[in-house]
Write a protein that binds this DNA or RNA. Structure first.
Length: 375
RNA sequence: GGAGGGGUGGCCGAGCGGUCAAUGGCAGCAGACUGUAAAUCUGCCGGACUUAGUCCUACGAAGGUUCAAAUCCUUCCCCCUCCA
C-alpha cells in the first residue's frame, strides 16, 4: 500500500471530485478542513465538528510544540486521542508562523528561531524538527516546513524565499518516515510570479510528495491575483495527487479555487468569524452584532440544518453576541462550519454530476443578494 | 447648626486660565478578519452643513474678573462625608 491513497472520482472542467485515504479514514474532496490550531477547533466539541460533516481538521506544529509540547502529546497517545478526534488530522509545519510571527523570529538557512508568543522563551524550528514534531503528533498529513512568503514582496525576495522553502522541502522529505496511510505534502511558493511558481512545482515534483499544497496566497494580493496564480500553478501540478490551497478562504475564494482544480482547503474564517459575530450564509455574510437583528424572530438561515438556525432566532443570537455569552460563539462557529461543509458537499455533488457551472452561477447570484429576499 | 469634599458630554471619570467640543474607559453605531499571538482589531461617537473645515450649543444655575474661563471670584441650587 502506498503512503496515502488518492482516488480521482470525477472531473468537471478543471475541477476534481476525489477521495483521500488515510490511516484514520477517508476524506472526500473537494474538502474543507476546520482549523484546530491548538488541538481544538475553538468553541466546538470535536463530536460537533464531525457532525458538521468535517472529515479532517488541521492542527499546528508551532503552537503545540510550545504548549503542551509535542512529546507530551505523544506520551499521551498522540493528537487523535489527546483531542478526541479519531478522524484524519493534518498538521501545519509552522511555516505560516514564519510569516505571521516575523517580529518574533530570526530566520537562517537551517531554520527559524522563535521567541514564544506565550512567554518569550526561545525555540528552534528546522525542517527536521518540524517533521519530528508532526510525527510525534501522529498527523495523517504532514506538511513540509516552509516559509509562507509575505505580501507584498519583490520578485527577487520571493525567489529567495521560495528557493529556501524548496531546500527545506527536500530536508522535510528526508526526515519524513513513510508509513501506510500517512503522507507528506510539499508546499508550492513563489508569490504571484508565474515563473517562480513553475520553478517551485518542478522542484517539489522532482522530490516527490504525497500531495501538493499551494502556499503564500490570500495574504493580501487579492482574489484576482490569487486566481491568476492558481490558473498557472494547478495546470503544472500532478493530477494523481491531492492539491491543497493553504489558508483559503472566503466562500467565493473556495468556489473559484475548486473550479481551478484545488481539492483541499483550510481557513480560520468560519471559526474566527463565528467568534467575531459574522455568519456566512447562502445569501452572503451577516453581522449578528448589528442592531437590525434585535427584533428579528426569524432563523439566521431557514434552510440551514445547524443548531443555531434550527433552534434559535436572529434576535437571540444577536442577544448572545451582544452580551458576550459563550453560547453565541459556539452557535455561530457551528453555523459557519456547517455552511462551509454544505458548500463543499454542494461542490462535490455538482462536480460528480457535471453541473459545476450551474452550481457556481447559482452560488454567485444568491451570494450577491440575487433574486432571494434579503436578510 | 459646624467643618470639609463634590456637581464635566448616555454612564463612569480626567482636566483645574489659552494648545478644550474637552484624555481614558464603558455603553452605542458600523467595518475588518483568509496554513489563528484573535471571544480580536479598527473607525465613528454634542448639533448643523458633504470630508478638510466652518459655525452653533456646551463642563449644576446666575452674575463677575480677564484679551481669553470647565478651570479664578460672588451668590444660589443640589449631592456626599465627618462633628453636634
Amino acid at each position: 500500500m502506498s503512503a496515502l491513497g488518492f482516488d480521482l472520482l470525477a472531473q468537471d472542467g478543471a475541477a476534481r471530485r476525489g477521495r483521500v485515504h488515510t490511516a484514520h479514514g477517508e476524506i472526500d474532496t473537494p474538502a474543507f478542513m476546520p482549523v484546530g490550531t491548538a488541538a481544538t477547533v475553538k468553541a466546538m466539541r470535536p463530536e460537533s465538528v464531525a457532525e458538521t460533516g468535517a472529515q479532517i481538521v488541521l492542527a499546528n506544529t508551532y503552537h503545540l510544540m510550545l504548549r503542551p509540547g509535542a512529546e507530551r502529546i505523544e506520551r499521551l497517545g498522540g493528537l487523535h486521542q489527546f483531542m478526541n478526534w479519531p478522524k484524519p488530522i493534518l498538521t501545519d509545519s509552522g511555516g505560516y508562523q514564519v510569516m505571521s510571527l516575523a517580529s518574533l523570529r530570526q530566520l537562517d538557512e537551517q531554520g527559524v528561531t522563535f521567541r514564544s508568543h506565550l512567554d518569550g522563551s526561545e525555540h528552534r524550528l528546522t525542517p527536521q524538527r518540524s517533521i519530528e514534531i508532526q510525527h510525534a503528533l501522529d498527523a495523517d498529513i504532514t506538511m513540509a516546513f516552509d516559509e509562507c512568503t509575505k505580501w507584498p514582496v519583490e520578485q527577487e525576495d520571493a525567489a529567495k524565499s521560495m528557493r529556501l522553502s524548496m531546500r527545506w522541502a527536500r530536508q522535510s522529505k528526508d526526515a519524513f518516515k513513510a508509513r501506510d496511510g500517512y503522507g507528506l505534502f510539499g508546499i508550492v511558493q513563489g508569490s504571484v510570479f508565474p515563473e517562480l511558481r513553475a520553478e517551485s512545482v518542478a522542484a517539489l515534483t522532482g522530490i516527490g510528495f504525497d500531495g501538493y499544497a499551494i502556499g503564500g496566497l490570500a495574504v493580501g494580493e487579492g482574489q484576482e491575483a490569487m486566481f491568476a496564480t492558481l490558473d498557472i500553478t494547478t495546470r503544472l501540478m500532478p493530477a494523481d495527487k491531492p492539491r491543497y490551497l493553504m489558508g483559503v478562504g472566503k466562500p467565493a475564494d473556495i468556489v473559484g479555487a475548486v473550479r481551478r482544480g484545488i481539492d483541499m482547503f483550510d481557513c480560520v474564517l468560519p471559526t474566527r468569524s463565528g467568534r467575531t459575530a459574522q455568519a456566512f450564509t447562502r445569501r452572503g455574510t451577516v453581522n449578528l452584532r448589528n442592531a437590525r437583528h434585535q427584533d428579528d424572530g426569524r432563523a439566521l438561515d431557514e434552510q440551514c440544518r445547524c443548531p443555531a438556525c434550527r433552534d434559535y432566532s436572529r434576535a437571540y443570537l444577536h442577544h448572545l453576541i451582544r452580551n458576550e455569552e459563550v453560547l453565541g460563539l459556539m452557535l455561530l462557529t457551528w453555523h459557519n462550519l456547517v455552511y462551509y461543509q454544505e458548500l463543499m458537499a454542494g461542490l462535490r455533488q455538482a462536480i460528480a454530476g457535471g453541473s459545476l457551472d450551474a452550481f457556481c452561477a447559482e452560488f454567485e447570484t444568491v451570494q450577491n443578494g440575487g433574486d432571494i429576499a434579503p436578510l
